[in-house]
Amino acid sequence: MYKFIAVDVETANRGRHSICQIGLAYVASNGDMRTESYLIDPEERFSSFNVQLHGICPTQVAGAPAFPEVLGMLRHRLEQSILVQHSTFDKQAFDMACHAYGIPHLNSEWINSVTIARKAWPEFKGNGGHGLANLKSELGLVFHHHDAEEDARAAAEVVLLAEERSGLDFLTLGRPKSQQKRA
């Protein structure tokens, strides 16, 4: 089991269910991290805006598995860990893709690293904010934005840096006070 798994997705078009890449950053209790990425055939059209944003095009996912197959491979480990996302987009994308394919939603707890970053660095409010692009600049993170594997790693690094800065664990930083005793 991991301390947490950071998750990020890229989509083929405006439909949040159109996942074409999943990136994961597995964080061990000692802070060690490994990452992986899966290209996914969204089984629908790509918009030029999304292709320009993340660089993934239909030819890159040709022959890749569809979402249900990839989720089938990942489900057990994702449901055994707390999942971290930077914003709420990724959970919504997973939920919408599960709905679109008629498969069960993940039974996982999701924590938002934006919430964690706001608590650790309140001074960024109004000064560029707590999005990954600004945190990249402010915290000196090195990653290629809008690559799901890179963004998952960056979200995980934000959480680890926030723990270091605040002296609090990510659950205390990320959960509402009413849920903090559930750990």
Rank of each mutant, 00 (worst) to 15 (best):
A93N: 05
E157D: 11
R75H: 10
I111L: 08
D95T: 00
H130R: 07
A97H: 00
I82K: 03
L141R: 08
I82E: 06
E109C: 04
H145A: 15
A148G: 03
A148L: 07
A154V: 01
T88F: 12
S137G: 07
L83S: 02
E79K: 01
V142C: 14
A120K: 00
Y101K: 10
G140A: 01
L135T: 03
M96G: 10
N107Q: 11
H130T: 06
E157G: 05
C98G: 01
C98W: 05
S81D: 10
D147N: 15
F94I: 00
T115R: 10
A93G: 05
I116S: 05
V142H: 13
M96K: 11
Q80D: 14
I111K: 04
A155I: 00
G72H: 14
F143R: 02
I116R: 03
I82R: 02
D95H: 00
N107E: 13
K125C: 10
L135H: 12
E138G: 04
R77Y: 07
H105K: 12
R118C: 12
L78T: 03
P122W: 15
L74C: 10
W110F: 10
G128Y: 13
H146L: 04
I82W: 01
V114G: 13
M73Y: 14
I116D: 06
F143W: 10
A156G: 02
L74I: 01
K125G: 09
D151Y: 05
H76S: 15
S87P: 08
P122L: 05
F89Q: 11
F89A: 06
L135W: 13
S87Y: 15
A93F: 06
S137P: 02
R77H: 14
R118T: 07
Q80C: 06
A156H: 00
G131Q: 09
R153K: 14
L106W: 02
H86Y: 09
A120N: 04
S81G: 03
A133F: 13
H145M: 11
Y101P: 06
I82Y: 02
G128Q: 14
L74S: 06
G129L: 03
F124A: 09
E109T: 05
L141W: 09
R75W: 12
V114D: 13
P122Q: 07
T88L: 09
H145Q: 15
